[in-house]
């Protein structure tokens, strides 16, 4: 069984996103970038499956400009076997639908039976790509998973999904796509020896244009704004009674 792990390079989640007023975009020049934390969890899960002997190969895929290679190198250093880099022009604003179409192409080509990916990327917070991908290639889908168990015969997986009302357990026939949630595992570090070794692992580069996928944007970002912390007009109170009556009036109790 081949596992494909799509990974995304995003602004480091602990870095404050800042808006460049002139370009009306989030300013990423010289900003610290990192692998999307949900993708790290996906990589970890794929590696655990491979280590248990149930997978033949793990392949990380990422789409982006040259810098994206760093993120693929991180995946390789964590332990993924090889990487596919889909190279784009710098200006391209790829949306989940495009990404799903590109990934669909690669998954078909690789004949991968399992796709493990993050439930969302912490930059655009769309939470869509895995779902869309499953729609395009008609793989079964398990979103927001916090537990993953491959059946003994290797034809299906049992997943626990973290949903609003609790935890749903489902059985997914392979081929399948799962999107992972935070509690699934704790990703390993890319250790220094492994970073060194990762340099000689295979990385294939594919020009996006060679795939013939229409990437014209469906959504245009008109403007962006930092939400910031706004001061509120505060009212002084001085007793429990007053507090409860205010809260009742505001309808929040």
């Amino acid at each position: 069984m081949k596992i494909i792990i799509p990974v995304k390079r995003v602004l480091d989640p602990y870095t404050q996103a800042r808006v460049n007023k002139q370009t009306q975009q989030v300013d990423l020049t010289n900003a610290k970038m990192a692998m999307n934390p949900f993708c790290e969890i996906a990589v970890e899960e794929a590696l655990t499956i491979k280590e248990s002997g149930s997978a033949s190969e793990t392949i990380a895929v990422s789409i982006g400009t040259d810098k994206t290679v760093d993120t693929l190198r991180t995946a390789l250093a964590m332990g993924v076997d090889r990487a596919i880099f889909i190279k784009t022009d710098s200006e391209l604003d790829l949306q989940p639908l495009h990404v799903a179409k590109i990934l669909a192409n690669i998954i078909k080509r690789e004949e991968a039976e399992l796709v493990i990916m993050g439930k969302q990327a912490v930059d655009n917070d769309n939470n869509q790509t895995g779902q869309m991908l499953s729609g395009l290639i008609d793989y079964s889908l398990g979103t927001f998973i916090s537990k993953f168990d491959l059946s003994a015969d290797g034809t299906s997986v049992e997943v626990c999904r973290e949903i609003d009302s609790g935890i749903e357990t489902r059985q997914l026939g392979l081929p399948a796509i799962v999107t992972v949630d935070l509690r699934l595992n704790e990703p390993r570090y890319a250790s220094l020896p492994n970073i060194m070794k990762a340099r000689s692992k295979p990385m294939e580069t594919i020009e996006l244009s060679s795939l013939g996928i229409d990437t014209s944007p469906r959504i245009k970002i008109v403007s962006v704004e930092e939400s910031g912390t706004k001061d509120r007009a505060s009212k002084q109170i001085s007793s429990a009674e007053e507090l409860f009556s205010e809260l009742n009036q505001m309808g929040v109790l």
């Binding site: 704790e186 990703p187 390993r188 570090y189 250790s191 220094l192 020896p193």
Partner: peptide
Amino acid sequence: DMGIDKEGNQKGTYTPGM
């Protein structure tokens, strides 16, 4: 080393230095 907790114990993510 990476992956050592507050008390100095190895965590699940323990990775020795080089």
